[in-house]
Amino acid sequence: MDRIAEIFHRCRRGNRRALVIFTVAGFPSFPACEEALEKAVSAGADIIELGVPFSDPMADGPVIADAGRRAIEAGCTLPGVLELAERFRKRHPETGIILFSYMNVMFHYGLEALCAELQRIGVDGILAVDLPLEEREELAAPCRAHGLHLIALLAPTTPPERAARILESASGFAYFVCVRGVTGVREGVESLLPEELRRIRSLSPVPVVAGFGIGSGRTASAVAAEADGVVVGSAFVGAQESGDPEALVSELARSIRAPKTEC
């Protein structure tokens, strides 16, 4: 069983959901970022999404966009992120690592070379924000060749027949974007989802995680009732800046430990 499947299997056995933590790699600096990731892992993160900052983050809200800009200014590059991933992998052989990026930065590095390097390091997969089904094969082919999952994205706007086509090629896990719009914490995310999430989960050959807009234990708990995992990004990045990332991850981990069933 590969690492991602193993993680979801372990979570199911423990009657909990997987906790996926996103951060902008290299924010605010590589050492500070690695320290925050250590706290996230010790507080219960199962999978880490390493966001590669891009100059034009058109799918991101202000928190992640600003963190990305500052990481770039501090000298963050894709090769630097790969070095971080390699160090992290050596310390944490069981934690999932997903590289999260816009296409241009990866394309510039070379998709084949990147996938070969990710395989060597032990990264589990790639999530490309701006790579819908129509363009997927360009990256899916090198991912397949190097045993990497290319994470499929679904949105609230995705019609059912399209969702079915996307899920056919899903690998590792599928990522359901909870909100119409860019990344960032929102109130009341949970009221939008249950039906669509339930439908997608019933169609999916792989576990489904939900993300975008989730920033508190309360929201995470509500979303966790319908998903195999939750993704928290902006709130974690915000906590890195001015807060307590460890306390946040602990709260999130607790909140999805025993997902609420309807009472």
């Binding site: 701006d130 819908p132 089904l133 129509e134 363009e135 949105a155 399209r162 974007v177």
Partner: peptide, 12 residues
């Protein structure tokens, strides 16, 4: 060319 956008925009 192509359609390198977030999935949210694809239906639009």
């Amino acid at each position: 060319g192509g359609q390198y956008v977030a999935e949210t925009l694809m239906p639009a």
